[in-house]
């Protein structure tokens, strides 16, 4: 199994690594780059907790090969806030109690940020639809939905 050299940007930093073709983007992020905020919880696209932004769009990183991201730009949860200053959505998650155990929180934040960037005023239905690809076992989802809607309202 020949390793391939790939170059990509992650959270604004350019990286070049050699990676075997059977390694996923999730593996690249967690095991090679040691960014542990992106979580592994099913490896078959069901839970969505490994979701990251690939060229600005959310993807489940367990279903993308690392070799596929050559030349791409990736953002993980560690790349959302700048210099320790939380984003409006991160603050809203805290205010609305949108996290408990926290294991799914990075993925919900990634999708939430993507949604609001793309559509500053999503309807509740659009928020729910965007979140349907992710699982949370603690919060019952409502506080997460409210947190995202509160930021979109604040943007009006």
């Amino acid at each position: 199994m020949e390793k391939k050299k790939i170059t990509f940007k992650i959270n604004g930093v350019e990286k070049t690594v050699e990676v075997a073709p059977n390694k996923t983007l999730l593996w690249l992020i967690r095991e090679e780059l040691k960014l542990k905020g992106t979580k592994k919880a099913c490896e078959r696209g069901d839970c969505g907790l490994c979701t990251v932004l690939l060229n600005g769009e959310p993807v489940k990183s367990c279903l993308v090969l690392a070799v596929e991201v050559d030349g791409s730009e990736i953002v993980t949860v560690e790349g959302l806030s700048r210099d320790g200053e939380l984003t409006e959505l991160q603050k809203a998650f805290i205010e609305h109690g949108a996290l408990q155990c926290g294991f799914c929180t990075p993925a919900f934040l990634i999708v939430g940020h993507w949604l609001i960037n793309r559509n500053p005023r999503p309807s509740k239905e659009e928020v729910v639809e965007a979140l349907n690809g992710l699982l949370c076992r603690c919060t019952g989802y409502r506080p997460i939905i409210e947190a995202i809607l509160s930021v979109s309202k604040a943007k009006k």
Binding site: G37, V77, L86, L99, G102, P106
Partner: peptide, 8 residues
């Protein structure tokens, strides 16, 4: 919460 929303 801070640690949990930043992925750390």
């Amino acid at each position: 919460a801070y640690e949990k929303v930043t992925g750390f």
